[in-house]
Every structure is written in structure tokens, then in C-alpha cells.
Amino acid sequence: MVFNTLVVDDSAVMRKMIIRTLHLSGVPLGEVYEAGNGQEALDVMADHWVDLALVDINMPVMNGEEFIQRVRADDETRDLAIIVVSTESSETRINQIRAAGADFVHKPFTPEQLRDTVLRVTGVSDGEPHDMEAAGGGGFDF
């Protein structure tokens, strides 16, 4: 089992931080797609199978809430595992996110907080070899 993963955030730097954490978490990743907003994410999903999506809320064109509604309304995609990664702090909105069957990680997050949620959602047990090389970033000092 590998997880084809879609990372949706209007910040390219944030997308790379999330992808680095995924690789280091030991989650077996298949294809990793990126999208800058909800509409781009739907376009990716029209062409590619995705198992896991990490989604911001406040984005231009189509925000994360609408993206989740559209995904849940479509028989093809309704079971997608979704983790919202957002600065959102409104309980009202967080409750709506959870009611839509998505998990939630609050920005700013520590790499450990994001890893713990990703492992729980994917059901991957910790301790599997980490994909150090694929994580991007610079070289290691140790």
C-alpha cells in the first residue's frame, strides 16, 4: 500500500514543508501532487487517483471548505482521507471540518505534530524506515 498524496496550499514553501514531513514520517508515498487552491486540487483529482489530501482553508479561487464539500459530494472521491492544515482557530469552522470527516492540524505546527496526525490518519505504524533522500531540503550534517 502506498499513498498517492495531494498537498493543497497557496504557499509553495508550506507545501514543501508538509511534503518533507510526510517523507520523514515513514508514510509509504506514491505520487505526490501539489495544488495552489481547491480548484487546482479538483483538476488534479480529475486526472489522478489520490488517497490522502492535506488541505489549507484560506486560499484564493476556491477555499479548502468548498474543496472538501465538493470531494465529499462526489461518489468517486467521497472517501478521500483529508487532513486540514490551517491557521484556522475558529471552533465553529474546526467543528465543520471534523463533521465533514477531516482531521485537523493547526498552523504553526511542529514537524512532530503533523507527523503524529499523518501516522494516525494513514494507520502507518511509526518506526518504519524514513525516506531521507526524498525529503528535499539541503544535505544532512549528520
Partner: peptide, 12 residues
């Protein structure tokens, strides 16, 4: 420490 571990791909 957190910066160094992030740079080097180590979680606590």
C-alpha cells in the same frame, strides 16, 4: 535544537 533536527530530518 529544533532547527538542527528539522534540517537533518530527525523528529523528537
Amino acid at each position: 535544537l529544533k532547527k538542527l533536527l528539522w534540517k537533518n530530518g530527525v523528529f523528537l
